[in-house]
Amino acid sequence: MASLEIITYPDERLKQVAQPVERFDEALRRFVERLEQTMRDAPGGVGIAAPQVGHLFRIAIVDVSSRPKIACNGRMVLINPEILSWEGMVKGREGCMSVPDFTGNVVRAECITVSALDETGRQREYRCTGYEARAVQHEIDHLDGLLFLDRLVSRRTDLFPRKNYGSRKSA
């Protein structure tokens, strides 16, 4: 199965809000398959959103299970996803297949609960932490026309990672 072509910024479709999916039919399942293939064909890619292939619908896929030593839910097809809860904040480095040759630091919730439909229309709920939670938030941003470039944090804040505050002992 052939990959789909990944569009790159400044393609204006990456800045548009995607539409909810209403029909859970064979065409949707075929598209999800090809979207997943596109993600897996991209070296290092752990997530993808439909707008990245120019398809403006609320569909994302995340699978971080190829990365060593991290907690994860495996393959997640997230259709019409909604983040139900957020906890904690953590800075991490992100890159995007639609923004080649640049990475930057972004602050994301450390722990989220997300509800979504899968490609058969079944309701799912996932609890994600750390790296996986970051990937889900990055992909859901794509559905709202947001890129990680919209959330870059200043280098200066790097001097004070949050952990230092967390581990401060009381005097």
Partner: peptide, 13 residues
């Protein structure tokens, strides 16, 4: 002095 070393794992998505 305080020294913190952390891996940087870039998420590509």
């Amino acid at each position: 002095i305080e020294v913190h070393l952390e891996p940087v794992t870039t998420m590509l998505g």
